[in-house]
Amino acid sequence: MAERRSNRGRGTSLTPGKIIEAALRLSDHDGGLDRLTLRRIASELGVGTMTLYSYFRSRDEILDGMADYVLGRMRLPTEPPTDPAEAMREVGLAFLDMMHEHPTVIRLFGSRVTDSRPALRGAMEAPLQRLVDAGIPGPLAVRCYGFLITYTIGFASYQVPRPWGRTADTDSPEHAEQRRQRVHVYAALPRDEFPRLVELADELATLPTNQQFLVGLEGFITSVLSRTENSVQH
């Protein structure tokens, strides 16, 4: 592994984009932001640490670049929705997909603010436009956006250390086994102390699943639609 990494950067021209991609690889899959150092990034690319300073002045600049990279590439479905409920659903799921692909962004949201135009276009302008195009008034679209992004950050944070939930849709053998073990943890508790946990062990193991995310999302959508319908009637 060390030899493979040390040779990765050789024979290719180094660019800021390649540095950001390497930093994301390490942070997403190999220890998170806490272990992300310039030395590890340089090793991943097969270059000396000082080489990175030709492109970025500090680790903080790389973190800003990582946030811009992920947020600027947020993807929404090509076909716009025809109703407000579908628009809110699409934006919420797009945020969740982005955080699944790059778990690092969850921490970045909680520690940094970016004003770069690519990030603002990808993760703010485009989702807001999608909501407004579906018929949601601008001020309400802003409130919907605020809920969707903060709800997704919180839920994705809950999912990260509970991998058996995130892939319940595909139900890989590994994660199915992890869920089975989680059910066993609850079911094996003393019933006199934890009657509800024992009784609901199967359901509790589904808490970090995407289906649970949709429960909260659909509840919010119902609330928004009910509020807008009432305002129109009055």
Score class of each variant (00 low, 15 high):
Val105Ser: 06
Arg107Glu: 14
Ser111Trp: 06
Arg112Leu: 13
Val113Tyr: 09
Val113Glu: 08
Thr114Val: 03
Asp115Lys: 03
Ser116His: 05
Ser116Gly: 01
Arg117Pro: 01
Ala119His: 07
Ala119Met: 05
Leu120Ala: 11
Arg121His: 06
Arg121Trp: 08
Arg121Val: 09
Arg121Ala: 07
Ala123Arg: 06
Met124Phe: 15
Met124Tyr: 15
Glu125Ser: 08
Glu125Leu: 13
Ala126Ile: 13
Leu128Ile: 15
Arg130Glu: 12
Leu131His: 12
Leu131Gly: 15
Val132Cys: 13
Asp133Ser: 15
Asp133Asn: 15
Ala134Pro: 11
Pro137Asn: 03
Tyr145Thr: 06
Leu148Val: 03
Leu148His: 03
Thr152Leu: 05
Gly154Thr: 08
Phe155Val: 01
Phe155Gln: 00
Ala156Tyr: 02
Ser157Leu: 05
Gln159Val: 10
Gln159Ile: 06
Gln159Trp: 01
Val160Tyr: 02
Pro161Cys: 05
Pro161Lys: 04
Arg162Tyr: 10
Arg162Asp: 11
Trp164Glu: 14
Arg166Trp: 05
Ala168Asp: 06
Asp169Asn: 01
Asp171Arg: 08
Ser172Pro: 03
Ser172Asn: 01
Pro173His: 02
Glu174Ile: 06
His175Gln: 08
His175Val: 03
His175Glu: 10
Ala176Cys: 01
Glu177Cys: 04
Arg180Pro: 12
Arg180Lys: 15
Arg180His: 13
Arg182Leu: 14
His184Tyr: 10
Ala187Pro: 14
Ala188Asp: 13
Ala188Thr: 10
Arg191Gln: 14
Asp192Glu: 12
Asp192Arg: 01
Asp192Lys: 00
Asp192Leu: 00
Pro195Leu: 00
Glu199Asn: 05
Leu200Lys: 11
Leu200Cys: 10
Leu200Trp: 11
